[in-house]
């Protein structure tokens, strides 16, 4: 942790740079979503736009967590504590997603309605 006044002065520069990166990332994420020139994949929203948007968001989030929240030089215990939350949150999202989109198709009940859910 930056504790001495010297370290803090140095850190302030870093904070400004990261602030700049966050602004730039936000502008980028809006541009790829709204300006046709930067639109990747099909015309309009598609899964490429989703992955790109999430990738930019994750990058921004990592900068906030690493620099603003000092995770780049934090005590080991903090990693353990916070990681426990992240790991289980990811497990939850993945398993719930898996339960909805099971790779093996199940032809039990209600398959008549299943087609409604898919956009043509």
């Amino acid at each position: 942790m930056a504790d001495s006044a010297e370290d803090i002065k140095k850190a302030i520069r870093t904070y400004l740079i990261v602030g700049g990166i966050l602004f730039a990332g936000t502008v980028a994420t809006v541009l790829v979503a709204t300006v046709p020139m930067f639109d990747i994949g099909r015309h309009g929203f598609d899964h490429w736009d989703m992955w790109l948007g999430l990738a930019i968001a994750t990058t921004k989030a990592s900068f906030v967590a690493m620099v603003f929240m000092h995770l780049n030089h934090e005590k080991k215990a903090v990693y353990w504590l916070f990681a426990s939350g992240i790991i289980f949150a990811i497990a939850m999202v993945i398993l719930i997603f898996g339960a909805k989109a099971d790779p093996i198709e199940y032809k039990g009940f209600g398959q008549g309605d299943a087609s409604i859910g898919t956009t043509p």
Binding site: M92, D102, I104, F109
Partner: peptide, 21 residues
């Protein structure tokens, strides 16, 4: 204990792959 929860939901028509998990 965090990754076993859906064994309460076998009868909901979950897919076989996730059931197996």
């Amino acid at each position: 204990s965090f990754i076993v929860w859906a064994h309460h939901m076998y009868m909901t028509g979950m897919g076989p792959a996730i059931s197996t998990w």
